Amino acid sequence: MTEKLLRIVWVDRPEVSVFDLPETSVWGPFTATSVVDLGAQSSHDAIASAEAALLCLPSGAKAAPIPWAALSAVSADAAVLVLADTMDGATQQRLLNTGVQDVVLQPDAASLAQRVRLAVQRKQVELEARKAYATDLGTGLPNRQQLIEHMSQLLALREREPKPVSVLAFRIEGLQGVESGHGVESANVVRRKIAVRLRAGVRASDVVASLGGDVFAVLLPSTESATDAEYVVQKLLRSLRDPFKIAGTEVPITAHVGVAQYPDDGKQPEPLLRHASTGALLGAYGMKDSANE
């Protein structure tokens, strides 16, 4: 029996089904919970802590609409398998293009345990590759591409469950001076220190990303008002005021911040990032003095 326990979430599982995961299997062990409505936040939370989600769909004339947006969102981080009695090839292909790892039909129900285990392994390889490709090596933060991907999934969810989202763009001044006076590696050290302070100043559910060079972004998935975003801005600016030191020498760093709100300032990642970046360039919020003054 395989050593690693796989956490499985059944989604919309009917009381009677040909699909099941045996208690003992060479592809196990498994532990399972059940949820209903893939689009519900509680379902997303359950799937986020699992390795795989098994979405049960009716077939034929009784088929319910497939929750495409929610399916795309949960497929980003978990291995999702769709289980159905029958399904046409075009729909199967669309599911796979959406991010579903596998489509299991009734004739293949006996192989479900094997297909779950293999789907989880494929997903883990995919996530490791994505992490390596989508990480800013200088800071260890997600890069612009990864941030846009995360925003796309979040905004798709917000289409179903409307709630304000805030995007903050931080433009850092002084890094070029550090590089000129102390070298490239010293500038990278300061960038890493900035990343640590930004990450420490927000919630675990918030995303801090590097947009390259001297620009950072913070994604707040749930804010009730612009006032909430401004509170976070001021908190992070205060954290950046503490002195940055290189070889015992304080280096002058300042920051300017722009804020974009979904849906008022845009409903797609790129317009929101542009709005926030423009605000940072114009100094919508900023430090009047350098960080060590």
Rank of each mutant, 00 (worst) to 15 (best):
K288C: 02
R94V: 10
L154T: 04
S34K: 12
S152I: 02
P263M: 05
N188Y: 07
Q93A: 15
A119K: 04
E224P: 01
V16P: 00
D206L: 04
A276S: 08
P142N: 02
S17Q: 01
A73R: 12
V16G: 00
S186Q: 14
M287N: 03
A73Q: 06
T249W: 04
A64R: 14
N188M: 12
A40S: 12
E224A: 15
G266P: 08
L83Y: 13
R7L: 04
F170K: 11
A64M: 09
P22H: 05
E293H: 09
E270M: 15
A132C: 02
S59K: 00
D264W: 07
E51V: 03
S225G: 01
S17I: 05
S239V: 00
D12G: 02
S239T: 07
I8E: 13
G212D: 05
P269G: 10
A132R: 03
T135A: 02
A76K: 03
S166I: 01
A204H: 09
K123D: 08
R238Y: 07
D242C: 07
V208N: 11
I246C: 11
V74Y: 04
P142A: 04
D12I: 01
E293N: 07
F30E: 04
E23C: 04
A129E: 06
S225M: 00
Y231G: 09
Q261T: 06
Q153I: 00
R13H: 03
S59Q: 05
Y231R: 15
L38H: 07
R94G: 11
R199Q: 14
V184G: 03
G181Q: 14
T91H: 12
F19N: 08
F30S: 04
I148Y: 00
S277V: 08
L220W: 09
V100A: 11
D242N: 12
V104D: 07
G140H: 13
G39P: 02
A90W: 11
A63I: 03
V251Y: 11
L81M: 06
L57W: 01
L38I: 00
W68L: 01
A255Y: 00
N188R: 14
P164Q: 14
G140C: 13
T278K: 12
A195S: 14
G286F: 13
H182C: 13
E270G: 02
I253Q: 04
I172H: 03
G279M: 13
D136N: 14
Q261P: 00
A291N: 15
A40E: 10
Q176C: 07
P22E: 09
R117M: 06
E128S: 06
L137S: 09
T254K: 13
R13A: 13
P263T: 07
R203G: 00
P58W: 01
L157S: 12
D45V: 15
V9W: 04
G266F: 03
R238P: 01
R160G: 13
A79P: 02
E173Y: 07
